[in-house]
């Protein structure tokens, strides 16, 4: 059964390769000198950084966690965003407590 043997060998080789890659990834994640998490955290703490420097196109994409709640919708609520990155960032902040209230006619 030459084809079966070849197929089993091929699948085993692929599985082993994937396992080696995943094991290497897990080892790298656990290795402080590779991930440099401590150094990055020290940098964040020293500079007081709040956001990742990924999208520098607009202030609310550069600092999504610090942006005004309405900035992505500057034209009107629900407006399409000007910046492509805005479509990646889903609104994630909890709604602030409202101070708005209405009273019906005659209500005290």
């Amino acid at each position: 059964m030459p084809r079966t043997r070849l197929f089993v060998l091929f699948i085993t080789a692929l599985t082993l390769l994937l396992a080696v890659l995943l094991a290497q990834g897990i080892r790298q994640a656990a290795n402080p000198s590779f991930s440099q998490r401590a150094e990055k955290k020290a940098l964040v703490a020293t500079l007081g950084l709040t956001d990742l420097s990924i999208w520098s196109e607009a202030r609310y994409t550069r600092h999504p966690s610090q942006a005004d709640l309405f900035t992505p919708f500057q034209d009107y609520p629900g407006a399409f965003d000007h910046f492509p990155a805005g479509s990646i960032i889903a609104p994630g902040q909890p709604k602030p407590q409202t101070t708005l209230s209405f009273k019906q006619r005659g209500e005290q």
Binding site: L22, Q24, G25, I26, Q28, A29, F34, S35, R37, S53, I54, W55, S56, E57, T61, F83, P84, A85, G86, I88
Partner: peptide, 18 residues
């Protein structure tokens, strides 16, 4: 796809998180 209109876009030298 992620970059959008950002001119300065970092290289992703990521630590694997599996």
């Amino acid at each position: 796809v992620l970059q959008g209109w950002s001119v300065l876009f970092p290289q992703f030298n990521l630590t694997p998180a599996i």
